[in-house]
Amino acid sequence: MLYAERDDFKDLIPIPQDEGPSPLAPINYSQKCNPHRDAMDMFRAVVDINEKSERALGLTEDIIRMNAGHYTVWHYRTTILVELGLDLQSELKLMDELSTEFLKSYQVWHHRRLCVGLLATTTSPFADKNCPAAVTISSTPQTSSPPPPLPSSIDLARYELQFIANLFHATEDPKNYHTWVYRQWILTYFDKLFQDQDRHHELEFIESLINDDIYNNSVWSHRFFCLFKLGWLHTSLEAEIEYVLIKIGIAPSNMSSWNYLRGILKVNRKGLNQQRVLQFSETLVKAKSASDDMNPPLPALEWLADAALEDKNPIATKHYLTLKDLDPIRRHYWTWKSHLALSA
């Protein structure tokens, strides 16, 4: 039923959009059965009298379900939650559903972050997971730098990480940008609360995603984030290099793992001339070149070329010219590199 016809809203008069003079011809309001416009007209009526109520909350949910990108409506929803001191646990449950449905909406993730930031700074969220106490809040949201989370909110953090893991699985979209940014926010925000088991769990999660799709650049980026931004590397750099080489062995042309390898050397202030990587790359290049119709994996040859250039070894030029033949779409880049090598 349209809002304009609902008994529980009959005290309000819907306010149609005031188009004003528009470069785009005026809207024809004869089209009455547009549920989105009906809800928006009622939303304007609610905002007009600044009504913060349960029914207004329901109205915002309806509009969000029709149009999850409408940030004005999200904002109004947040102010209702805050001003009425409503239960944020149930809001989070609703976000579980909406994040799945509107995976690519900025607003849905931002709202989730607001809720989590508020919950994490409130006493005992998730104290009893089976019967969560209603958590209410009465302060104004300050999201760019919420205060540190309370120690008791560690379960909330774990819940969020598990939720995201499930979401990647359910939506079959483990490259979703918003979701990864959100996960990294959780890991950063709750970093001081995490224990070894949490860090171990995260690395297992990363490993499982790499095994699912070794070409998933987002996971490689996330691995770097955990090990080198958050500083969770607990093995030696050499062990991490070995790990990457094993993965490269499975998919020798995978730019994501090669970029990662370059990245971890760079962040540790090491050059490309690592004996172990050079041997590995040479083996890959030789093995492929020996077979009849197979090109050598380009990133392996590129590594040899860049390492030779770093060493001012003239063989670099030859490698770059080979790369130019094998990768003609980027021939200008390879030509430039070969000139660099010549003048080195």
Binding site: Y177, W180, V181, F225, N259, K266, V267
Partner: peptide, 16 residues
């Protein structure tokens, strides 16, 4: 700035 020289939307976010 990320390990690949690029930028994400925030510190540490994947290059896009």
């Amino acid at each position: 700035i990320n390990f690949d020289g690029g930028f994400g939307n925030n510190i540490g976010a994947e290059t896009h």
